[in-house]
């Protein structure tokens, strides 16, 4: 390094560093955050600087040392998910495993404005409603709102019996379907959400402006909005985080299932897969002919939700 460059660097860093971390009054945004590049355009060093800043900010706000990663997608991997609806018993273990793993906001007992966020919603459908109806009843051919004879709008979200599964009931867990042609990505005005090379749709919470267009565009109701600052008890925060995944969100941003990007990019199963007591949830690489997901697609009866919309979900429902 030349002497001149060295002096320049020293002067610049000493002059900018304290200014950059200052927060602009009223909007409460630091200059560093304001001048942050789009995640896809960042170099490795810029990513590192952003991660450092975020870890500092989370330490200030939540008092927890977190470890944020930016692990990129592996070559030759496209993740796919399969769910056996014949086996699902609707116990919601997956829902709460997901909440714990992905740092979703809990309902705070002290703050009535806090909102509880679940990425997975389990729908209970009465089995008698599964009979494909006649055309006069509007079932079977109507566009968009009918899935394999099930009217999803008539399902029960808040079932709470003593024991599950109940007789004559079927359970359909719904989460982000990680579409190959995602309508949510098309509508984003700031390109804060995009499809990664391994097929996962991610959100950059620092770029999301909270317009909620993507929530309106999603036909699966898979996206959730942070109406308030997330409330997570300090001891329940998962410190193993990914920039595009489970790092703690801000108020006014949209979030969604990322197939546990922080786990799957390190070769581990998503939290919901490991939590399912009946083993109804299956996960694997769609490009690997020996993976369980490919075997399911090859050998089982498989359907996808709202296939007629042409969103090409990578989330398959199957039956034995």
């Amino acid at each position: 390094m030349k002497r001149r460059d060295f002096i320049k660097k020293v002067v610049m860093t000493s002059a900018i560093a304290p200014v950059a971390s200052l927060r602009i009054p009223f909007v409460n945004v630091s200059i560093e955050e304001l001048t942050q590049k789009h995640f896809k355009e960042m170099s490795e060093e810029e990513k590192k600087a952003v991660i450092e800043r975020l870890e500092r900010e989370y330490k200030e706000r939540y008092g927890v040392d977190v470890n944020i990663k930016t692990t990129p997608a592996k070559e030759g991997v496209v993740w796919g998910y399969a769910l056996n609806i014949k086996r699902c018993i609707g116990c919601r273990r997956c829902v709460y495993a997901c909440v714990k793993e992905n740092n979703q906001s809990r309902a705070s007992p002290d703050d009535p404005t806090s909102n509880e966020i679940h990425w997975i919603r389990v729908l209970e459908v009465a089995q008698e409603k599964l009979e494909p109806g006649t055309e006069e009843q509007g079932i079977g051919t109507k566009f968009g709102d009918v899935v394999a004879g099930v009217v999803l709008e008539e399902s029960e979200h808040y079932y709470d019996p003593e024991k599950v599964p109940e007789d004559g009931k079927m359970y359909i867990p719904i989460q982000c379907q990680q579409c190959e042609k995602p309508p949510c990505v098309k509508v984003c005005p700031t390109r804060a959400t995009w499809k990664e090379p391994d097929g996962i749709i991610v959100v950059d919470y620092n770029w999301c402006i909270g317009c909620r267009y993507c929530m309106a565009a999603c036909p699966y109701w898979a996206r959730r909005f942070n109406w308030s600052w997330p409330y997570i008890p300090k001891e329940e925060i998962n410190p193993n985080q990914h920039y595009l995944g489970n790092r703690i969100r801000y108020r006014g941003v949209v979030e969604k299932c990322t197939f546990c990007i922080q786990r799957t990019r390190e070769g581990r199963y998503p939290a919901c897969v490991e939590a399912c007591p009946v083993g109804a949830r299956k996960f694997g690489n769609l490009l690997d002919p020996n993976s369980e997901i490919r075997k399911i697609i090859r050998e089982k009866r498989v359907f996808r939700l709202k296939e007629e919309l042409g969103t090409e979900p990578k989330f398959f429902y199957f039956m034995d």
Binding site: I89, G90, C91, R92, R93, V95, Y96, A107, N115, E116, H118, R121, H157, Y158, Y159, D160, P161, E162, K163, V164, P165, P277, V278
Partner: peptide
């Protein structure tokens, strides 16, 4: 572990569900 072979019905035993989401 899931299917007791000595049971009359070895299917997975019903369990208590977790609490429903906020309305």
């Amino acid at each position: 572990d899931c299917h007791n072979p000595h049971d009359v019905n070895p299917a997975f035993k019903p369990i208590t569900p977790e609490k429903p989401p906020e309305k």
